[in-house]
Design a protein around this nucleic acid. Structure first.
Length: 266
DNA sequence: ATAGGCACCTGGTGGC
DNA sequence: TGCCACCAGGTGCCTA
């Protein structure tokens, strides 16, 4: 998208999680994409109009790119699919299709200059790969938290970008029980979580993400990190920690499934 | 300020 | 085959 101009924007319904901003199609048409960036799980496309297009994929959202050649492979345009809610037609023939069955995703237009102050972005914590997410910060942040460590890691105010899968996997690697209150996590363990979280995310990115159901990378390839799951989705299966004979358990915490080894994770 | 529960929505799966 | 319950990658909002 970068450097290309949106020549047509098809908005096929009035909303996703929230109504689209007024006249979104008209405000996107003819605008060039200056840069693509990301904050937490929000995709941000800066336009030459001084506006920034914000996109969130929610649980089931995906963006498919067609009409482009990547390496030797040409991604052909596909027939429209159910739940293709927004389609951008780019000036060099590419098509960007936003498809989202559950419609928990979102799109909005922000002023680029103050995008970080937008209510959806302003309260988000440090990026996990940023310098401000470090051992001292994290140990201090957990100290005052009375929620289970599972909920604390999912809380985007504390650290950005961790979802249910990567929280479960991080806690397993740290050998920490998801039920333990954050403030009762020993400082050494809190500090150890920082590089563990970075490792889990790095490895997942390297593997192209986690393909549950039919998640795909932007080039259509499946992600492979799900084969590296140690606990997520493995209820009743044997713990993979060396020497451990326990089974992975599933519990529900704040309405979400938590997978963990009750023997290894204390 | 913080924590927990609910809501939003569609689709897939498994049991009867 | 149909019906129903339950589950799913996220996060804003309300209540206590």
């Amino acid at each position: 998208m970068v450097g290309q101009t949106i020549v047509q924007a098809d908005i096929n319904r009035p909303d996703l999680r929230w109504p689209f901003p007024p006249d979104m199609a008209a405000r996107l048409t003819g605008k060039r994409v200056l840069s693509l960036r990301r904050r937490s799980k929000y995709i941000l496309a800066d336009l030459d109009s001084g506006k920034t297009l914000l996109i969130h994929l929610g649980m089931s959202g995906r963006i498919l790119i067609s009409g482009v050649q990547i390496g030797t492979y040409t991604h052909e345009h596909q027939a429209p699919q159910k739940h293709d809610h927004v389609v951008f037609h780019m000036d060099q023939g590419a098509r960007i299709t936003f498809n989202d069955p559950r419609r928990f995703g979102a799109m909005d237009l922000l002023d680029t200059a103050t995008a970080e102050n937008h209510p959806l972005l302003a309260q988000i914590g440090p990026e996990p790969f940023g310098n401000s997410f470090n051992e001292d910060y994290f140990a201090e942040a957990l100290k005052s938290r009375k929620s289970p460590i599972k909920a604390a890691l999912l809380d985007q105010h504390l650290v950005a970008g961790l979802g249910n899968i990567y929280v479960c996997e991080s806690l397993f690697r740290a050998r920490l029980s998801p039920r333990r209150l954050a403030q009762n996590v020993p400082a050494a363990k809190a500090r150890a979580l920082v590089p563990i979280i970075r490792d889990v995310l790095s490895e997942a990115i390297e593997a192209g993400g986690s393909s549950l159901k039919d998640y795909r990378q932007a080039d259509g390839e499946l992600g492979y990190f799900q084969h590296s799951f140690e606990v997520y989705g493995r209820e009743g299966e044997p713990c993979r920690a060396p020497g451990c004979t326990a089974e992975i358990a599933r519990i529900v915490q704040s309405g979400r499934s938590t997978f963990y080894c009750p023997h290894c994770q204390r």
